[in-house]
Amino acid sequence: MKTTDSDSAQDSQATISDEIARIQDDYQSTGVEETQPRLDYAPYRSSLLRHPTKDPHHADPETIELFAPVFGQRDIGTLESDLTVQHHGEPVGERIVVTGRVVDGEGRPVRHQLVEIWQANASGRYIHKRDQHPAPIDPNFTGVGRTLTDGDGSYAFTTIKPGPYPWKNHHNAWRPAHIHFSLFGQEFTQRMITQMYLPGDPLFALDPIYQSIVDPKARERLVASYDHDVTQHEWSTGYRWDIVLTGSHRTPMEEEDSK
């Protein structure tokens, strides 16, 4: 079935970059701070028919929404947080450790909660039938990880630095290298999925998905920092990336009750 999307790749990078710049200029002149991506962001062509046109309806979370699913050790295999040991051989590429803390809007740790990641291999290729990019599949790298945060909200993955990859948003479109992150909080309302980027990527300015977060400070929150204290002697380089979920609605009393 042909769906309405933008796989035509007709527009040039210059056209897309002009649109990005125009939206950025408009944002700077409004003076109203935004912290999340725009859902209606035309330079990302697939968003055209997939963004709600009506404002979201403000709701106070109730009952089930004040809780989140519980995940435990039985949900996770011991090797799932190390993406480099899931096959017989070593995957190709730069071994990295990505670690950080998950906290809520008040800075409280999100404890014992599920973090899921997925990513392309060092060549920028996903193990996904839809990814037809002519770059090599690495038989020793699937690119999927899961872990639980610890009592301090900390998580850590060992993986391979992902490569950038082409996509069909426009002619010669390339995504900056990224790792997809899926997060749960202590309430349903904190559920989120995002992408972590690596510092200094030359593709940031050209990428409509990254630029859909029109506030420069906000989008820089998706960029990990190199941390030499995380780097391990003769083993891997290290990156730190902390994640803040939206504010919690539960009172401290309810927090106690839920234990």
């Binding site: 991506p37 809007g105 800075g107 989120m192 998706l222 939206t246």
Partner: peptide, 8 residues
């Protein structure tokens, strides 16, 4: 007190 990490 902390700005939320943006979604993608």
């Amino acid at each position: 007190i902390l700005a939320a990490t943006p979604g993608q």
